[in-house]
Nucleic acid binder design. Sequence first.
DNA 1: AATATATGAATGAACG
DNA 2: CGTTCATTCATATATT
Lengths: 168, 168
Amino acid sequence: MENAALCGKVMTDEQIETLRLQIAAYATICEQLAEMHWETELRQESFTGMGMISSSLSSDSAMAAASGSAKICARQRWTPTPMQLQILESIFYQGSGSPSKQGIKDITAKLAEHGQISETNVYNWFQNRRARSKRKQQANAQSEEEAESLNPKKARTEKLELAPLLFH
Amino acid sequence: MENAALCGKVMTDEQIETLRLQIAAYATICEQLAEMHWETELRQESFTGMGMISSSLSSDSAMAAASGSAKICARQRWTPTPMQLQILESIFYQGSGSPSKQGIKDITAKLAEHGQISETNVYNWFQNRRARSKRKQQANAQSEEEAESLNPKKARTEKLELAPLLFH
DNA sequence: AATATATGAATGAACG
DNA sequence: CGTTCATTCATATATT
């Protein structure tokens, strides 16, 4: 960075923005790795039992581990990565509001390239998207009253749904 | 990193593709923002539902710069007036923790006499009120526990910001 | 001002 | 599918 001062900008603003996006993507990946790590750790509970007297630790230790202590991290809910969100939005926007069973499989497969995801996640996402989209329309419908009579500017823009994407 | 420009490819094809998609998305969003701007200017009514602008854009300097002097940055969150708050609290206290759809309409109408408000605001308020009321009770349940020693139950600070690192 | 808290809003998942 | 819950995010307000 020091050289930047001497030589002028090394990167355009756009490139810097690109970088920022990439960084965000990596942050997401790291989160997912962390989550995978936790899940693996949980799964190990059952496996580690093999080297021990499994019967004796059946319920008690399991309960103790589950309830009392760390349980490190209780399940976090899935959050779409920016990339996943964008893909989802574009699919939704392109008309396929209710993908079929197979469609969900395909979409899930595609999104899996950009982060951990399950078919249930995709299914829920479309469910919610539809529901909230519809509710928003209903809300808009209430403003129908006055526009009717005296408003000739019906060049009325299509109410479009936009894709909120972006990072925090 | 700073020498990347001198060393050939800085980004993989996939990364470039990602960038391209992002840019396309930004273009779309800009169009839609502009359109929304007009619409919101036309109708002063509930900016409640229209939150999509600020939250997602806040971190993006480029977008912020784009909006520039034009305002677009409308959305402030609703804040109940003391009078509205009092009415809401009394309704909640009187047992109607979950007002019906129609109930929300009525309440909204009543509160509108004391300041700008929308049904969504009322809906959210009751949602939050219930949730936080319940959480208080939960807190009591914890007193049963051994107020004890070393249970660091809250790994709560978790929402880590992780460092990005490297391209591949 | 800077930090801490309160609270309006967004959203993934669950429920009927 | 429509509605509700639980959690999280972001901002307004309070406190130092």
